[in-house]
Amino acid sequence: MLDIGEVAERTGLAPSALRFYEKKGLLESSGRNGLRRTYEPEVLHRLELINCARRAGFSIAEISRFLVATPDDTVLRAKMAEKAKVLDEDIARLQRMRDSLEHAATCTHEPLVECPDFKRTLAP
């Protein structure tokens, strides 16, 4: 069992964020050790999923629905597919930006942002 302080330390989240996630139904504590909430070690995997989803732009409500999804939930599955498309577009945009920045780091064109190669890597 991990107490709330250990979970917070291992994940980098504030204890208040863990309590908030619990209040929203994303986490479930397994009990208390004195006044401190305790969690099963698997909570670390759940928090990694939540953190990844948050960084990908999912709302708390979307994550909540995702965590209880079943194969029969066709509406949610369609939304997941839509979100995957948006993420693919974001990934492509970020890869273009990374490639442009890598080029700019060694480019001698003045100004850098007017370099034809820099502009070409940014183009969709």
Rank of each mutant, 00 (worst) to 15 (best):
E89H: 06
D117N: 15
I60H: 00
G31S: 06
G57H: 06
A56I: 00
D73K: 00
L47Q: 12
G31Q: 08
S59H: 00
A105I: 04
H109W: 11
R32C: 01
E114P: 05
K85Y: 08
Y21C: 02
H45K: 15
A56H: 05
I91G: 13
R93E: 05
M80A: 08
R10Y: 03
D73H: 01
V75E: 08
L94I: 08
L2R: 11
R36L: 08
A56D: 03
E114G: 05
E22A: 02
F20L: 10
R32W: 00
I4T: 02
V113Y: 06
I50V: 15
L87Q: 06
M97S: 07
L27S: 07
L47G: 05
E89Q: 06
A78F: 01
M1H: 10
R32K: 14
G25F: 07
G25C: 06
V86G: 05
L101I: 13
A14R: 03
E89M: 08
Y39V: 13
M1G: 10
E28L: 09
M80F: 13
C107K: 11
N33W: 02
M80Y: 07
S29I: 12
K119Y: 12
E40V: 15
F118I: 11
R32P: 01
T121P: 13
L2P: 01
R10Q: 10
R93K: 11
Q95E: 10
V113W: 08
L67K: 10
Q95I: 09
P41W: 12
I4V: 06
R36N: 07
E42R: 15
L112W: 06
L76D: 12
A84P: 01
N33G: 01
L26P: 13
S64R: 12
Y39R: 04
D3M: 03
S30C: 14
D99T: 15
V86M: 09
K83S: 06
V43S: 00
D117P: 03
E114D: 11
K85M: 15
A92C: 02
V68E: 04
P41C: 07
R77C: 04
K24H: 09
E89L: 07
E62R: 02
A78D: 01
K23L: 02
S16I: 05
A84M: 08
R65F: 04
K85W: 09
C107F: 11
D99S: 13
